[in-house]
Design a protein around this nucleic acid. Structure first.
Lengths: 156, 156
DNA sequence: CGCAACCTTGCCGCACACGTGAGAGTTGAG
DNA sequence: CTCAACTCTCACGTGTGCGGCAAGGTTGCG
């Protein structure tokens, strides 16, 4: 406000697709594809129709990449999670649009069910992975015991 | 050797592909595909070249299905895990082929490193999923609090 | 031995998740 | 204003993970 050097007001730092993709570790093609299948829309477009991404978009992209890489979710599953999220935000709006306590309670209860469903989905995956970890650790422990039986020697 | 009635000696209960697939919840096509990409080979073939699967094969198939469905691993990643397992079994053989304690120790240490790598891979996935669960549960808790603020009413 | 039900290999097709140009337009530094 | 670098929208190509069909062979009950 006090200087004339055009300083983007922090909230308006927009990146073009290449920079945005680099930032989150994806390719421009993937980012466009995610838009194609409805996972996100750039915050804005330039005069010449270039896609422009803000920090919110980047977080969304990181979210998508995390689910894809780390959890092995398909884009369809990710779309479902994002859809649930959107539904909750619509619920948020509906919540503020009414003052009826019963209605408000109903909205919050829906939101609760949505969270619960998501948590259960994630926990099932964790449970399966944990079982595998447990089995592997048990076998690792047996190997450690056998090394100990071999007697001294600190090579590992 | 002592009787002429061909009685499968318990260890030789072999299933054809359709039964095997049904048993583990896959399709015959998938099972053949897994063989095509080197994930398993049937324990035997019949006179007419029918694939015959034993209990070990079934467990391997269940292992593959679990990783595919629950953990979202690609067949290539599963192949890697199975490859590591095979390496450990080769180590097992090598272990019994020698009596040199140093050699034996080296073999066991390799096995240990293999287990550790696998455990780390799995735990990274779990960590990511757990982070998501934590975030979702925190938001769920805020929703619960807001419902409580709305006062009485046990509808959910 | 006949015959239905199952199996074989081979091959084409499909959905997903992008990669890779082609051809045209945009941006911004010099 | 020029020009390299970037971006746009089609549009076709690619690898994965199977589905499905064809043409023929195998099994095993009756």
């Amino acid at each position: 406000m006090t200087d004339t050097t055009e300083r983007p007001p922090e909230s308006a730092r927009l990146l073009r697709i290449h920079e945005a993709a680099l930032d989150v570790g994806l390719t421009p093609r993937s980012v466009r594809y995610y838009e194609e299948v409805g996972l996100l829309k750039p915050a804005a477009r330039s005069e010449g129709d270039y896609r422009l991404y803000d920090e919110t978009d980047l977080e969304r992209l990181r979210f998508i990449k995390g689910l894809r890489d780390d959890a092995g979710f398909s884009l369809a599953e990710i779309a479902q999670l994002l859809e649930d999220e959107a539904a909750r935000e619509r619920g948020h709006a509906a919540f503020h649009a009414t003052t009826d306590p019963d209605e408000r309670r109903r909205i919050l209860c829906e939101r609760l069910a949505s969270f619960d469903g998501q948590i259960e989905t994630l926990k099932r995956k964790i449970g399966r992975l944990q079982t595998m970890v447990d089995e592997t650790e048990a076998r690792r422990a047996r190997t450690v015991a056998r090394i100990a039986e071999l007697g001294a020697g600190e090579t590992c």
